[in-house]
């Protein structure tokens, strides 16, 4: 057992219980359905703007890209234009592949002692696979939720839903029924990838050693969100029409507390609100940070162009010509060679 993940797990369970108690015991529907989501949204926007503007304000006096290939050099040496870009186009390519395909994570290795304590590094692809699966599944899930905010539902959301429910799973036993409404693959991919990422942190010694409560908390939180969503869609069903009415009310600034919706919905909503509010103040802010990483978004042209430190003050200089002018006679007397005799 480890205090870090135990703590995060307990916090997420406590949050879920607070949401449930807030609605079912204390009857604070207005607080949990209207105030909490709006406050979360405001905290998200303020926090996000503050973080990004803070980064924008910090100086990057020198180019510090972390390069992973041959630098631009002599004409017959082939440059790696994506991994060691020297132009803006190269940087754009590099950033695109980094953001869309997690290119740097693809190079992930793991260190292990082989026979005779020989340290060996192996290419380890599963972190990349799970991270990619998680991010894309989450993106699809978020986009699918747009059906609750638009009337009529946009065409691309319907298309996404069709693609997502392409494989039809239907299993109906007296005690376990799944399949109606249609199973969306993305939800299960999301949950599976999250469980893998969590298992990695818990079971791999080296990763556990560097994991903090703030690494486990978002994992447990999103697991809670995905699990409550799946539970709500397939098992403990809720009145979707009432929920859409509520969501549209929130989006049009005429919020109305939904009636007759199961407690699981309030848990889901509260956990999502917590995630949204927590986002800009945590490691999740890498979503914005990736765009502003000086080790990624700068071209490696340190030797090609002169980069002047923005806070340089004007230095008083005394060039050699001026020096010789001042001391010429003394230099000639002392027998020191000078450039100009006169």
């Amino acid at each position: 057992m480890n205090l870090n993940y135990l703590f995060s797990f307990t916090v997420v369970v406590a949050l879920a219980m607070i949401a449930w108690a807030g609605i079912d015991v204390w009857g604070l529907n207005g607080l949990f359905c209207i105030a909490v989501p709006y406050v979360a949204a405001i905290l998200f926007i303020i926090g996000f703007a503050k973080k990004v503007l803070g980064w924008a304000d910090s100086y990057v006096p020198f180019r510090i890209p972390t390069t992973c290939g041959q630098e631009k050099s002599l004409p017959w040496i082939k440059q790696n234009k994506i991994d060691n870009p020297s132009t803006t186009t190269g940087v754009v390519m590099r950033m695109f592949f980094e953001i869309v395909l997690f290119r740097s994570l693809f190079r992930n290795t793991k260190a292990k002692f082989k026979d005779n304590y020989r340290l060996s590094y192996r290419w380890e692809i599963f972190l990349w696979v799970a991270a990619l699966a998680f991010h894309y599944a989450f993106a699809v899930v978020v986009l699918r939720h747009l059906r609750f905010f638009f009337e009529p539902v946009p065409q691309f959301v319907q298309l996404l839903e069709k693609a997502d429910s392409f494989f039809r799973f239907e299993f109906f036993a007296p005690f376990f029924k799944i399949g109606l409404p249609g199973v969306y693959l993305s939800g299960f991919v999301l949950l599976g990838a999250l469980l893998f990422l969590l298992g990695r942190r818990i079971f791999l010694g080296q990763v556990r050693y560097v994991s903090l409560a703030s690494d486990y908390f978002p994992l447990f939180l999103i697991i809670g969100i995905a699990a409550s969503g799946i539970l709500m869609r397939y098992f403990a069903k809720v009145d979707v029409i009432a929920i859409k009415e509520f969501a549209m009310g929130l989006a049009s600034l005429h919020p109305k507390v939904p009636e007759g919706v199961g407690a699981i919905f309030y848990v889901h909503l509260f956990l999502v609100s917590v995630l949204v509010a927590y986002f800009p103040y945590s490691k999740l802010m890498h979503a914005g940070g990736i765009f502003l990483s000086p080790t990624r978004n700068l071209a490696n042209n340190n030797r090609e162009k002169r980069h002047i430190n923005p806070w340089n003050y004007s230095v008083k200089t005394h060039t050699y010509e001026e020096y010789e002018e001042e001391f010429r006679e003394k230099m000639i007397e002392a027998g020191i060679p000078v450039e100009k005799e006169q």
């Binding site: 703007a49 503007l53 924008a56």
Partner: peptide
């Protein structure tokens, strides 16, 4: 950076703008 930030916020808040200005009632 500021342009990117504004575009991001515009995209994130699309449901708000759409529902505010389309004049649709949220009623079921």
């Amino acid at each position: 950076i500021l342009t990117g930030l504004i575009i991001f916020f515009a995209i994130v808040t699309v449901p708000l703008w759409y529902n505010l200005f389309s004049g649709k009632k949220p009623a079921a």
